[in-house]
Amino acid sequence: MITTAPTLASNSVLRVAPASPAEAAAHFRASLALYADVSDVAAALAAGGDPGFVLLDSRSTESWDQGHIPGAVHLPTALIPERAAGLLDPAVPVVTYCWGPGCNGASRAALALAELGYRVKEMLGGFEYWAREGFAYESRQGAERRAADPLTAPVTGACGC
C-alpha cells in the first residue's frame, strides 16, 4: 500500500492529475453504457435463450462471408437507414461490430442506429478479437474456430475481469 502521495509533476503519468473518484465513476459508467467486450457478448449468447440484445455485423457481404459471429444480423452500415426498421425492434438494444480495433465501422453503425432511435452499444475488438479469443464463427465454408491467442485471452480458465 502506498502511503505517500506522489508529486503530480514527477512523471508523465501524473503530470495531469487523475480525475476525482466521482468523475472517474461517471466516465467509466458512461463507457460501460456504450461498449461491451467480446467475452461478455460471447457469454450472453452462450447462456442460451434471449440475450436481451441483437448482435449486428455492419460489414460488407464479402466480409460477412469471410467470417461472422453465429446469430448475428447482417446489416452493412450504408444500408442501416433504409433497412433497420424491417430487421430490428426499436425496443431491443443493438450491439454492433465490425472488423476490429483498427476499424471504426462499428462506431459508424452505432451512430446511424442511435440517430434512428435505437439503444446501442459497440462490441470492442470486433470480429478480429472474437476469432482471436477462440470463439466459434461461421464463414462461407461453414463453422470455424481458432485456438485462443494467449495475448488476448486466457488459454485455460476465465480472465477474471
Rank of each mutant, 00 (worst) to 15 (best):
A9Q: 09
T152H: 14
V13A: 12
P154T: 08
F135D: 00
T7P: 01
A110S: 13
A43D: 11
S60Y: 01
G126Q: 02
V95S: 01
D37I: 05
T3P: 01
L34E: 13
R29T: 15
L87K: 15
P6Q: 05
A22L: 13
V155A: 15
P18F: 14
E128T: 09
A5E: 12
E115P: 04
S63Y: 01
I80C: 02
T4M: 02
A78M: 13
V94E: 05
P154F: 07
E82N: 07
L124I: 13
V38M: 03
Y129S: 10
L45Q: 12
A147M: 10
P154Q: 07
L124C: 06
E138H: 06
G117N: 05
A136C: 04
E23R: 11
G134H: 04
N104M: 08
Y97P: 00
Y118C: 00
G86S: 12
T96F: 00
A85R: 13
L32E: 15
F135Y: 15
E122M: 00
A91M: 08
P81S: 07
A42C: 09
W99H: 13
L75S: 08
C98Y: 00
R59S: 00
T3I: 05
V95H: 02
R140P: 00
G100Y: 04
A19L: 15
R119A: 11
P154Y: 07
R132K: 14
A143M: 11
G117A: 05
I69A: 09
P150L: 07
L55M: 08
A22E: 15
A153H: 14
A9M: 04
D40K: 07
F28A: 05
L124A: 14
S60K: 02
F127G: 01
A148D: 10
P51T: 06
A5T: 14
I2K: 01
P150N: 11
E138K: 04
L79P: 03
P18D: 03
L111E: 11
T156I: 10
R108Y: 00
P70G: 12
V54A: 12
P101D: 11
A131W: 01
R119Q: 15
C161H: 10
M123H: 00
A72L: 10
E138T: 13
L75P: 07
A136K: 07
G126V: 02
C159D: 13
D40F: 02
L56T: 03
C103Q: 02
I80N: 00
T61K: 15
P76G: 08
E138Y: 01
P150D: 06
D40T: 11
D37T: 10
S39Q: 10
L8V: 03
L124K: 09
Y118R: 03
Q141K: 12
A153C: 04
S39Y: 03
L116G: 06
P70D: 13
P150C: 11
P101V: 10
L151Q: 11
L75T: 07
D40R: 08
C103N: 12
A85D: 15
S63A: 14
A5V: 12
T7I: 08
A17I: 08
W130I: 03
L151W: 08
L113S: 09
Y129H: 08
P21A: 10
P93Y: 06
G49C: 06
C103P: 05
S12D: 11
L79S: 14
G48T: 05
A43H: 09
A84G: 09
A84S: 14
P154C: 10
Y35K: 02
A36I: 10
L14D: 00
P154S: 11
W99S: 06
E144M: 14
P93D: 09
G67K: 06
S107E: 12
